[in-house]
Simulated scan of single mutants.
Amino acid sequence: MQIIRTIVWVLILAVLLIFSWFNWTPVEVRIWENLLVETKVPALVIVSFLLGLLPMWLYHRGAKWSLNRKIVSLENAARATIAPVAKADPAPSPAPPPAAAPHPSAAPPQPESDHLKPESNTP
């Protein structure tokens, strides 16, 4: 795309140079009643071209800047929407290992204090 743009600008410059070469004559431009400017035709053409090009170029740059800001804003909003979903569903952690069960042949521990023993009726 850059090569096409360069070719177009080179062609415009070549046409402008050829036009300037063949039309290098002085002209009088009356701006107001008392103001008369004597200039060459190519200078008048170049100034007229720039006066027409500059406002449209500025409008184009402003619109492009505004649209780029909207695109960046929408991309950031999309990233913000996607990011919490990925973090909210983490991979499940492994289950803790089961507690060691006592061996079935082992006797339950006996209490050592006397007040837990059953009372006997011996006088």
Rank of each mutant, 00 (worst) to 15 (best):
I31E: 05
W21A: 08
S73D: 03
I7V: 14
N76W: 05
R5G: 12
A83G: 02
L51M: 13
T25M: 04
P118R: 13
I3E: 15
Y59A: 11
V8N: 02
S120T: 14
T25H: 08
E28M: 05
P92N: 10
L53S: 06
H60D: 09
I46P: 00
A83T: 08
V85A: 04
I46N: 04
K64F: 10
P94I: 03
P42A: 06
V15W: 14
V85S: 02
K87N: 02
W9N: 15
V72R: 15
N121R: 14
K87W: 07
V47I: 13
T81G: 02
P109Y: 03
K64L: 14
M1N: 10
S73G: 07
A88E: 05
R79Q: 02
T81E: 02
L36H: 08
I12W: 07
S48L: 12
K64E: 13
A106L: 10
A43Q: 07
E119R: 13
P123R: 15
A78T: 06
R5W: 06
G62M: 13
L35T: 01
H60E: 10
N121Q: 12
I18T: 12
A91K: 15
I3C: 12
L54D: 01
F19H: 11
W57C: 02
Q110C: 00
A91F: 13
T122Q: 09
R61N: 06
I18D: 01
A78M: 08
